[in-house]
Nucleic acid binder design. Sequence first.
DNA 1: GCAAGATACATCCATATGGAACAATTGTGT
DNA 2: ACACAATTGTTCCATATGGATGTATCTTGC
Lengths: 163, 163
Amino acid sequence: MINEGSKPATEMLDQMFGSELRYLLAVSYIVLSNNQVTSRHIEREYQMPVHGWSALYAITSFPGLRSKDIQHLFPRPQNSISRVVRLLVDRDLVREEVSKADARAKLLYATPKGTELLAEIKAKVLSRQNEMLGSLTDSEREDFLKLCRKIAADPSLHRSKTM
Amino acid sequence: MINEGSKPATEMLDQMFGSELRYLLAVSYIVLSNNQVTSRHIEREYQMPVHGWSALYAITSFPGLRSKDIQHLFPRPQNSISRVVRLLVDRDLVREEVSKADARAKLLYATPKGTELLAEIKAKVLSRQNEMLGSLTDSEREDFLKLCRKIAADPSLHRSKTM
DNA sequence: GCAAGATACATCCATATGGAACAATTGTGT
DNA sequence: ACACAATTGTTCCATATGGATGTATCTTGC
């Protein structure tokens, strides 16, 4: 293997993570890499897109949630959420109920079947999370979370002047 | 607006980021939110998928890179990279050259036009990065990077036992 | 109380995406 | 030297995706 001048992968990554765009590249790299594992697994194992379980997770966490609210927790195009909610309803994982206060809105509730499935997936994802963060100490994890939350709380994450 | 028992968005986010899956949810939230801004912008503005400029960035950073190597820097399915490289070549942003050491491999080089376009996009992305990280101090940014790199360096990010 | 605009959600449609199968080339073991 | 496996990149095809539009309902201004 001659490799014709191209560097080994770790060295290239080091250079990328030392470049001007290092922060964006590094955090994207983590999420992309994890998606290659997690998303694919969930899609195969449960025949639904990743945001299928995301939506189920949101609905279970906040019974009576509307489709619109899911968008605030898992930023995705709205039709995408509409479709996945339909899938959850069709599989009897979620039940919808027209709001009495607003006939446009549908309040979403997990069914027992949905609650059960979520618990199963959640356990796997939790175990996956521990795998991913295996190299961090407890205090590093909390630091990481704190920084992520600080970025997440900044409104400029969602609205850009330059783009 | 009655809201029928559903909490305000920030309160729901707080609860999510306090749950067991907080680390994964928080970091995914950042990247998803940013993609809603950045990816859409690049797709519209430059008529190419986000990993179009990712590939161009990789190729410019490491002249003579092979398609295969791009995968290590920007984890994506391999046919997806193949397609986007084709797009870059068709637009005269990248030039490919069959490797003398391995006739299967194509070495990729940015053309002047490609280099120029990359510089333009890179400036925007850099400005977007500063926007996103606006709420972090310099030392917090470096902490964040350090933690991201630590996670990125762990092989279990790519290979899972539980999935 | 009624148009005009806003909002919630669904649907249409063109395109993007990723798994699988493929072709071409290289490496390996005997 | 020759079969066989591994690797690089491409293509096929079924499905996912997101922007635009549609429909129903609600809110606002007058």
